[in-house]
Design a protein around this nucleic acid. Sequence first.
DNA 1: TGTACATCAGTGAACGCGCGTTCACTGATGTAC
DNA 2: TGTACATCAGTGAACGCGCGTTCACTGATGTAC
Lengths: 215, 215
Amino acid sequence: MSWSGPSSGGSGRRGYHHGNLREALIDAALELIAAKGPAGFTIAEAARLAGVSPAAPYRHFRDAESLLAEVALRGFDRFTEHLTKAWKGGQPDTIRAFEDLGRAYLSFARREPAYYAAMFDSHLATEAHPGLQAAGDRAFAVLREAADKIVATVPADRRPPALMMALHIWAMAHGVASLFVREGPSRRKLPMPAEDLLEAGVLLYLQSLGLAGAD
Amino acid sequence: MSWSGPSSGGSGRRGYHHGNLREALIDAALELIAAKGPAGFTIAEAARLAGVSPAAPYRHFRDAESLLAEVALRGFDRFTEHLTKAWKGGQPDTIRAFEDLGRAYLSFARREPAYYAAMFDSHLATEAHPGLQAAGDRAFAVLREAADKIVATVPADRRPPALMMALHIWAMAHGVASLFVREGPSRRKLPMPAEDLLEAGVLLYLQSLGLAGAD
DNA sequence: TGTACATCAGTGAACGCGCGTTCACTGATGTAC
DNA sequence: TGTACATCAGTGAACGCGCGTTCACTGATGTAC
């Protein structure tokens, strides 16, 4: 049989070796980020949460930023997966799938605020963490692919650049997520769920392309 | 004659009393935020920058967060002023003024990154700092007013809620600003200035309302 | 199957650091008379 | 105009704290033979 980890039966560490410290540290980081934001997490506290001495994390991560970068990277991977599932290759139809994509963007921000913060709120120096930029690119690529499909249904003479469209949607989705889903002085009280706001925005945008049927 | 401050001739402090410490601390905070983000500023370092002992700031601010909140509040006030100027009451015409408003949003984020970060990136607890929420509201009100004017030019039967429209524009502008103007793993290389991206987005959006003349 | 050994993944003590905050204090300023 | 005094806005020393990081170490694990 193979359980989750080498020496763990599920209820935490066993003996001298933790068995799965790397994962435990990432979980701890997520917990701390969720509670206090990306700036409020420290290696020391993550170690404490994982039940391990403060020196132990250095066996797995060079420093705090590397741990944070790993969290962000995994976040992007999950995000990509989440968006891909929602897009479903453009099924049942392109417009519907596109709306689902928008909703998925927000639901990720809502349900995984720690990942989202690590990804978008941590001010990581991209170049110092290879793979991170690429992971972000992969997430964007889902949007880009969807935009390609949408744009292809527009008559050639009024077809906007798919890249531009993807950027617009990305910006609007991100704007809604950071303004209306997260705490802060700029947050408005919304008279509607953020999801509905975004969906309406996307629909209006698509209308301008002659899509999504005028009302 | 009245110069800038009680005992300052412009070249810094004079004697035992600083003369304008409150302002100097705010300037120092802006400088630090610009350099290291809202999380990377400390009262101690701000005091050092202002050439004053670490205890001095406590005569003017209860703690670091209060100072940050003051910075954010001033940022919102400047932002409001900046947007108001750009909107010009809807001159020369509503559409043009609306585009100017969008550009102004971005140019503020670009030219005042420290203020912008304090306003949108600092995760202040709004309720703990009275006036802050109101200042944010005033900034939004400029957009709201503009949306009202725009919407009024649309035939009544396809007139969208002005509030919704203001929220969409706010979200798109904020999304563009935080994704493409600031550093981070989610930042795309843009094949165009962010201002152009936003303007195109706003125009497309307005087109969906039958405004801004279809191309 | 047993044993020696290399390697791995932890410990825990220690270090220097900078921060937030307090305290009694003191120099400077302004004002009442 | 001068003086006593209250108030204000600083000082600087001190405190406790938690963090990042290092170091020599050691317990556990796996593997060659």
